[in-house]
Write a protein that binds this DNA or RNA. Structure first.
Lengths: 131, 131
DNA sequence: CGGTATCCAGGGAGATACTG
DNA sequence: CAGTATCTCCCTGGATACCG
């Protein structure tokens, strides 16, 4: 008898339950995943290409991010039996449909950045003491 | 040389590429922020309203999320000097412009969910042998 | 009602070293 | 070139208790 949860949520359906937005953000919300996707959006890239394009990323985190994206079907990994070894990463068709929303978000970020900075400053100086 | 530095922002911010997508995701990429925004998108809400609408959130995390969103100028907090105390949260105009991209992402999530699940299953079963 | 304060577990992420 | 393997740090987020 696997009883779920002893919570008293007898409400029908909370509006946020069927909202998969947090799950999307979990997919690409990692520190580097978004940048990897953006870079791969330009076209297929090799490992070291990505490593050099994304400032500050380590080999490990690049690997982890790529594996994660690959696991979720967002990028493909193709190994060419060359010497030296050559591996190419590319976005899948799954990505195509979020390119535009993602670009919209990026665009929004550029426009909203000043306001956000101002809001932060105002909040930080009024809420409590600096330092 | 190829210094394309036109801004006077001498902040110690991590000078990533000129792609602010990661920063957007940092704004709303928390576990609950997105759901709070979605809920507030329906209209102004009180604290306990939010707490009950968002299944699984704790008081602390709701407070933290709201404070964070408020600090970044994405939501407002209005205290009415009533008894019992009454506090209302609402989205700011900053949010208006990302409502649509966010909804697009949500929509994409619904459509892509099966493919993602399948990709995960395939990856997990083919990557290597369990055990 | 609308929060804070405190403690604690888990994992995201960095640094470093080694490998086919 | 394209990764793994550890080890560690620290931040996020959960649980609980208390406060104005």
């Amino acid at each position: 008898m696997s009883q779920r949860n002893t919570q008293v949520t007898n409400q029908p359906t909370p509006a946020t339950d069927d909202c998969p937005l947090p799950e999307v953000l979990a997919l690409i919300g990692g520190k580097w995943s978004a940048q990897v996707l953006v870079e791969l959006g330009e076209g297929p890239r090799r490992f070291t290409q990505l490593e050099r394009a994304i400032t500050g990323i380590s080999r490990r985190m690049l690997t982890v991010s790529l594996r994660d994206l690959e696991r979720n079907g967002l990028v493909t990994r193709t190994v060419y039996p060359d010497s030296p070894p050559r591996v190419e990463y590319a976005t899948t068709s799954l990505i195509e449909d979020i390119r535009e929303p993602l670009e919209a978000l990026t665009n929004w970020a550029r426009l909203a950045a000043p306001a956000i900075t101002a809001a932060r400053r105002a909040y930080d100086s009024s809420a409590d003491s600096p330092r």
